[in-house]
């Protein structure tokens, strides 16, 4: 065996192990959410008006809405409270006092929405590709998602399908 000479041995340097604490983030998020619960309810009421108008537009007076349209509408609708929450979190960190006025001063809303849509396309596109692959591989066992369908899917495994549990009522 060839031993490394002293001159080529590495120097030990104490570096910081880069990690983030998910637990701290969770406790911060729940604390801020519940400490400003009326702010979120007020935001939800405001968003509700837009939601009602959009759904009336999409359903053309009460008709069924496509799954893809509904998902896209929910995604666009959640961009505003998402940017608002980031704004509120920054104010909490920097010692500010978040209030209702923060709801109307969300900066860079268009870029936030575009970024969210891109991330959702990555996530949903990957999920759709996997579902379609399994539907092609196991045709009887897995049903394709069918974003253009106006009817509730027959099988409802997890997550997004639970949106449509009461579709037919």
């Amino acid at each position: 065996m060839t031993f490394a000479p002293e001159s080529t041995r590495k120097t030990v340097v104490n570096l910081t192990f880069r990690t983030i604490s998910i637990q701290t983030a969770l406790s911060f998020g729940t604390r801020v959410l519940f400490s400003h619960i009326f702010l979120w309810i007020a935001a939800g009421l405001l968003v509700g008006v837009f939601h009602h108008v959009l759904m009336s537009f999409l359903s053309l007076g009460g008709g069924p809405v496509r799954l893809g349209e509904r998902l896209l509408e929910a995604l666009l609708l959640s961009a505003w409270p998402f940017g608002f929450s980031a704004h509120v979190a920054n104010q909490e960190h920097d010692g500010g006092n978040p209030g209702l006025s923060s709801l109307f001063t969300v900066p860079h809303l268009f870029s936030i929405t575009f970024g969210l849509v891109c991330l959702a396309l990555l996530a949903l596109g990957g999920a759709l590709a996997v579902v379609q692959m399994f539907a092609w591989w196991l045709p009887g066992a897995v049903a394709p998602l069918g974003l253009r369908s106006r009817r509730p899917p027959q099988c409802r495994p997890v997550g997004v399908y639970s949106l449509f549990w009461r579709w037919g009522e």
């Binding site: 729940t30 979120w40 009421l45 968003v47 509700g48 609708l77 998402f82 929450s85």
Partner: peptide, 14 residues
């Protein structure tokens, strides 16, 4: 909308 706002609020804060 309240459910959507609360969810995206919690997600955004965390």
């Amino acid at each position: 909308s309240v459910v959507i706002t609360a969810t995206s609020g919690l997600v955004g804060l965390v």
